[in-house]
């Protein structure tokens, strides 16, 4: 369905994608993961033909570089930061893109309804919240029922409920035989959403294979920063007994642990009567167990 062959992209001397190659069968969901600047968005934009690249990308055998218009008829795109003309209403926006895609206007209205924006149809896009804007982008991406959906960081900025909805949406698309490629830097999203994983590291493929293989070898990790009310000496051994690495960074206690263990750490601190004044969570760097040298190999 999607064939990516030796795709490279550079901006001046900076190599953003370096010989990325993979195939994706119809009905599969592929998660492209990697840290910021790994080349995820560049790869997705190349698949859409929005960027000029070296190599070859085909959608259903149609070259994106040479027959971009035909290829894009088969692709729906959800950008990382959905942008529309603010002066148009939700209804006008959906209709505008439906006409460009040669889709009946009735389908545009149905798409708006399907993403729960029917009651906001007359509202100007400029007045929509970020979440509503993303729903509209999802409606636009589905116009014409494209065989391939390209979703760039679809979970970024979503609350838990919205992320669950998105997972259901992707599962629904897969049930209908649609192919989905999504980028994320949330390692937790991978097993729940994708069949396959492509890990990019500085533009190179460091892993491509089934998500089960990926998660078994590279359990998603988080880095949690905690500000406690002074009982740090007591807290550190407690956290160490539950999680991987604990360090003291100024007024913060930095904890690197399995993503799934975050709540356990917090619960233990509360249980010990240690007050957590503030905390923030980041995804940890990709686990070192991923082989950075080869395609599909795990060390």
């Amino acid at each position: 369905m999607l064939s990516v062959r030796s795709v490279s992209k550079r901006y001046g001397k900076t190599v953003v994608l370096d010989g990325v190659t993979f195939d994706l069968d119809a009905g599969k969901v592929l998660a492209v993961v990697g840290s910021n600047g790994a080349g995820k968005s560049t790869l997705l934009k190349s698949i859409l033909g929005l960027l000029h690249f070296v190599g070859d990308i085909e959608v259903d055998g149609i070259s994106v570089a040479r027959q971009g218009q035909q290829a894009r008829r088969r692709i729906g795109y959800l950008p990382q930061h959905p942008a529309f003309h603010d002066d148009l209403s939700v209804h006008e926006t959906a209709t505008f893109y439906a006409r460009i895609r040669g889709v009946p206007v009735a389908e545009a209205l149905a798409a708006v309804e399907a993403v729960g924006l029917a009651e906001h149809a007359a509202k100007a896009v400029g007045a929509l919240s970020g979440g509503m804007r993303q729903r509209l982008a999802l409606a636009v991406a589905q116009l014409g029922d494209p065989a391939l959906l390209v979703l760039d960081e679809p979970t970024a900025g979503l609350d838990v409920g919205a992320r669950l909805e998105l997972r259901q949406f992707i599962a629904g698309q897969q049930e209908r035989g649609r192919t989905v490629i999504l980028s994320t830097h949330w390692m937790e999203d991978v097993p729940a959403m994708a069949d396959l994983v492509l890990v990019l590291d500085q533009g190179k493929t460091s892993f491509f294979g089934p998500s089960s293989m990926f998660t078994a070898a590279a359990s998603p990790q988080s880095r949690m920063f905690l500000r406690l009310n002074g009982r740090t000496d007591e807290a550190i051994p407690l956290i160490t007994s539950l999680a991987g690495t604990v360090t003291h960074e100024g007024e913060w206690v930095a904890v690197t642990c399995l993503a799934a263990s975050k709540a356990q750490v917090l619960a233990a601190l509360f249980g010990a009567g240690i007050k957590v004044l503030d905390f923030r969570v980041e995804d940890a760097a990709l686990p070192r167990t991923i082989d950075s040298g080869g395609r599909g190999g795990l060390s």
């Binding site: 934009k45 859409l48 033909g49 929005l50 971009g68 218009q69 035909q70 894009r72 008829r73 692709i75 795109y77 950008p79 930061h81 959905p82 942008a83 529309f84 003309h85 603010d86 893109y97 460009i100 895609r101 040669g102 982008a137 636009v140």
Partner: peptide, 14 residues
């Protein structure tokens, strides 16, 4: 400026 160029060019439009 509006970042709508990418949205437009992601459509079946050259």
């Amino acid at each position: 400026d509006r970042a709508t160029l990418a949205t437009l060019l992601a459509q079946p439009l050259t």
